[in-house]
Nucleic acid binder design. Structure first.
Lengths: 344, 344
DNA sequence: TTGTAAGCGTTATCAA
DNA sequence: TTGATAACGCTTACAA
């Protein structure tokens, strides 16, 4: 019942299993009438080759794995979507593993590695040691939004220069002098680089160094809390006139805090985000942010893995994809009519 | 290099491969000193059993598959997250396949089916015929947010009664008489049921049947466009005073349209959504919506698949998980302080 | 053009 | 308690 095998097909077509295999994958010439008979048998028996048998013989899984911290939020969805598209188009399956801070993550990653031909690892999900082990064991690995470990391949989006450019926009164009940074430079390389660029912008204008970052996880709830903290100005200092948020979700949270504290976003309070998630343009006012090529990150990673799986060696590939400031109304710029927003 | 096998370990430990296997999986008693020698060899060689070999012998993949239309939006992320959690906890891998309207979807689903022990299929991603074939071939399948095909297992969230309750809230509590439905009853069973409940609410109050739905895909851009259409009231009729949106993303789009058309959400325009995505509570005003147990849907599906894989037969299981109206300010109710929002 | 047979790396049955 | 050895389902030399 469960499992017509190549032998059943061979028997029915009156040929050897080798011939069935040849017909099935077109790997060698087969006489027309033989082919027809085999094809008919395959059709009649609804034969689908067993992937385990095939994989064992071919010594490959035809599958790739992806490790990410958590599926929530648009960023990971997009990256994974890009990865999945590229992998599927190349006839590979995609196995996912979410670590969400679990302790057993390392074991699970090793397990995943034994199920696939190549691995994409996002951010700080996996201890360096595990990555090093797998890499040294010869397993194709690409790191995303994370510095390379040894000579692994890695891809990330540009952060520092764009963060500086965005901060300078607030300083030069809109005249802000007290800008708070909401995020956590320590929690991810991306965050650290954005903070660096933010600080560099202040330096380059000879401004007093900005206050230390207001720590916030990259989620709405934490952004809301951080914004309240920043805007309430418990100490003597005046509250900031602008909030530079580590990502769009933090920015989303700050909108609510701003409303509650009677600050008008885009007028007496500037807010910027990062990622350009789909919601950003639909907020009122629309959110000024930075567009990251999220799908492209996933696509690049998948292609790099293919190159390793098929092509083999070569020097490590490191790629930095460009990012782009998207000015909308939340920083004080004129409102962009919805019609002029490019499709996405 | 790539691939220390069970034979390498056996040779090194001076035992047979059978004994290595026994030690490895604890499937049969092994003398203490033998066990130690084998364990040492495994450790020294960093031996990891090949999953293809193991799978072939065990005749199972220890993996489950999930088919969804698109990764974008919080709904699928959450469902998949729940599914992944349950599967991973039970030592199963998870393979994902996004159909996003691709033509070749059917073939890809069949391919996925050959890589896993069970399949979760979301919504209208796969033709009935393919589902029927796979089910009849004895492959464990669970359908989610989709009516069963034949006697497959299926799980969904309640729609009709809750939609009616929400519509009655707008009618009875806030006195609305012209409510527009934004969504597409034809595109998904969920949408159809919400529309049914919406209509039923009108009937039960003896109101004139509501206008036909304003067609909108379940995304922000389409919600924005649909809302403009609804509110501009090109024909002679007065525009609606409330928008009943098929999901939160549509609702998000309507906020922007409302702002542009100078309607104040929660005051002269009521808006409701569906799903209670994380952003819903951070909008200003916060969005009245319906909470779906998205993670639980995924969890239930994974458990049902396990039951089929391990336990085997039995009658089809159909589950309907409860949903819950969440009143916030966008329908005109009093604003809930952020502090009183339960964590999620 | 086709068939035979040797792997691929496990698990599990039978003997010893 | 251990070892041979037969599956598991497929691909692919090598022969014919």
């Amino acid at each position: 019942m469960r499992g017509t095998t190549i032998r059943d097909v061979a028997r029915r077509a009156g040929v050897s299993i080798a011939t069935v295999s040849r017909v099935q994958r077109g790997s060698a010439p087969v006489a027309d009438d033989t082919r027809d008979r085999v094809a008919a048998a395959i059709e009649a028996l609804r034969y689908v080759p067993n992937r385990l048998g095939r994989g064992l013989a071919e010594r490959r899984h035809r599958a790739m794995g992806i490790v990410f911290p958590d599926l929530s939020g648009p960023y990971f969805s997009e990256v994974i979507g890009g990865f999945e598209t590229a992998a599927t188009d190349d006839d590979h399956g995609v196995m996912v593993l979410s670590t969400h801070g679990r302790e057993a993550a390392a074991d699970r990653v090793r397990d995943l590695a034994s199920r696939v031909d190549g691995l994409l690892i996002l951010g700080r999900t996996v201890p360096d040691e595990v990555i090093r082990d797998l890499h040294e064991a010869g397993r194709p690995i690409v790191l995303l939004a994370r510095p390379p470990v040894g000579d692994t391949d890695a891809v990330r989006a540009e952060n520092r220069a764009t963060a500086a450019r965005l901060a300078l926009h607030l300083i030069d164009v809109h005249g802000h002098r007290r800008i708070a940074f909401l995020g956590d430079p320590d929690s991810s390389p991306d965050g650290a680089e954005r903070w660096d660029g933010f600080v560099a912008a202040h330096r380059s204008r000879g401004l007093a160094g900005p206050d230390g970052p207001i720590r916030s996880l990259y989620r709405q709830a934490e952004g809301y809390a951080a914004a309240r903290l920043a805007l309430m100005a418990v100490d003597a200092r005046e509250p900031p006139t602008a909030l530079f948020c580590g990502n769009d979700e933090i920015a989303l949270g700050t909108y609510r805090a701003a409303t509650e504290l009677h600050r008008r976003v885009g007028h007496d309070l500037a807010i910027t985000g990062w990622d350009d998630i789909p919601t950003a343009r639909y907020l009122a006012p629309a959110l000024t942010t930075v567009r990251q090529p999220m799908r492209e990150l996933g696509l690049w990673a998948a292609r790099a893995l293919f190159a390793r799986i098929h092509g083999g060696g070569g020097p490590p590939r490191h790629e930095v994809l460009p990012t782009q400031v998207v000015l909308r109304a939340s920083c004080g710029c004129a409102t962009t009519p919805m019609q002029e927003e490019p499709e996405r």
